[in-house]
Design a protein around this nucleic acid. Structure first.
Lengths: 225, 225
DNA sequence: ATTTATCTTGACCGTTTGGTCAGGTTAAAA
DNA sequence: TTTTAACCTGACCAAACGGTCAAGATAAAT
């Protein structure tokens, strides 16, 4: 980790100065923000908004607490910023649920995308879980607009499939909730699964098998293929 | 609510005194403990162990904060006590998953029992979610013994069904995780579902339909019936 | 009627919390 | 080289935190 950041001692390395147009300062800012954001995502995911402390975030980010407040005015501002990131990633996965292909292909793709997201960014999933469990105090607007609009449009697509006789007559909301629940479970309850798995995280093979099983049960369960 | 509890003023009601053998004192203790436990379950479910405050618990239980500490020595003792209750209720639902009947009947019964528990005691489910998300710091022993033993024994039962050709060859752990996830989702993410449902909690009819859909998808998904 | 055991609670304590700030360092611009 | 703008942080603060306690109130036992 050859940090761009210089310590409190003067940096005398050759080439440590100019670059172009204040690139050094910009790099410092970017690196510090990233470190703080990553630490905050983890701490908020572990303890929720109320339970998380700025001191712990600073400790994990490896910066003094005052520096956290230099980059993010308040704990709430930091939390909101991370929620935005989480939502952006969720939207990305949502985009894989288009309506341009075979229902089975689309559902498989969406389930796999969500499970991969669960594995790649478990902290984001857990943060979302905290947020909803607590009553969605910061994100009810986002859910009742962006997410709900997306969900409702997918429900229409699914109802279309049902009307065309491509799948069983299943209430689409129930199906979508099931997909949400199952895919996020592998992140949110990852610790529990780990304990059941003899205190070892799921290997890549185990996770791939789990993914395939989830796809298989759901697709067959709604009469696809 | 004709409280047994007398205020700070003297209680001069006829019949307010003896009962039998200190029954009044016992009733006071029971009522206060119940009120505190109910309040604590809610507050811990909302904020997790770290985020919850004894002041908030006292406020909701409608007793002075010092009284909370009179009945439960520490915040942690109170938390552990509630976790025990939650585990007891989980065990009750687990018992419905016996191995004495038809696989479809057993699975249906277990799924319905877990969903009913989700609806009847959403706070317990959310508290469990907090506990696991944070890393099961208080309950990893319980999970790695009681819960794991139960789960492993159910996995054996399911493998038996598969060997007998009664259902598809599905990894039993994947199936059980799916049931855990989906049934608990209706409690843990109840707020999200409520928002999707036009800001109204699911009615009894809606919930019954959801339950039936979950059962239908999973049973068909694993090739039962 | 008196004693004893339990219940009640305002006031308090040491610690942790989110947040501030003055005074310093460093890098870029002039 | 000097100036300026951005970055850094130890020390600090008021509020909130978990927990304690002495003194009083109430109910059961004697």
């Amino acid at each position: 980790m050859t940090s761009v950041k210089s310590g409190s001692k003067q940096d005398t390395r050759i080439g440590a100065k100019p670059a172009v147009n204040g690139a050094h300062k910009a790099a410092i800012r970017q690196e510090n923000e990233e470190q703080i954001l990553a630490a905050a995502e983890q701490v908020f995911a572990d303890y929720g908004f109320k339970g998380a402390t700025t001191a712990r975030i600073a400790e994990i980010a490896n910066v003094p607490k005052a520096n956290v407040h230099y980059y993010f005015s308040t704990k709430e501002a930091l939390y909101r910023r991370i929620m935005e990131d989480v939502c952006d990633h969720w939207l990305e996965a949502a985009m894989t649920f288009d309506n341009s292909a075979d229902p089975a292909v689309i559902l498989r793709g969406y389930i796999e995308a969500k499970m991969d997201l669960s594995r790649a960014r478990p902290y984001g999933s857990r943060l979302w879980a905290h947020e909803i469990i607590r009553g969605a105090k910061f994100s009810s607007d986002y859910i009742s607009t962006t997410v709900k609009n997306w969900l409702d449009s997918r429900v229409v697509v699914i109802r279309g499939w049902i009307d065309e006789g491509k799948m069983d007559d299943i209430e689409p909301y129930s199906l979508m909730y099931m997909i949400f629940a199952t895919t996020q479970h592998y992140a949110d309850f990852g610790r529990q699964i780990e304990i059941f798995n003899n205190d070892k995280p799921l290997s890549e093979e185990q996770f791939a098998e789990a993914k395939e099983n989830v796809v298989k049960i759901i697709l067959k369960g709604v009469g696809l293929n």
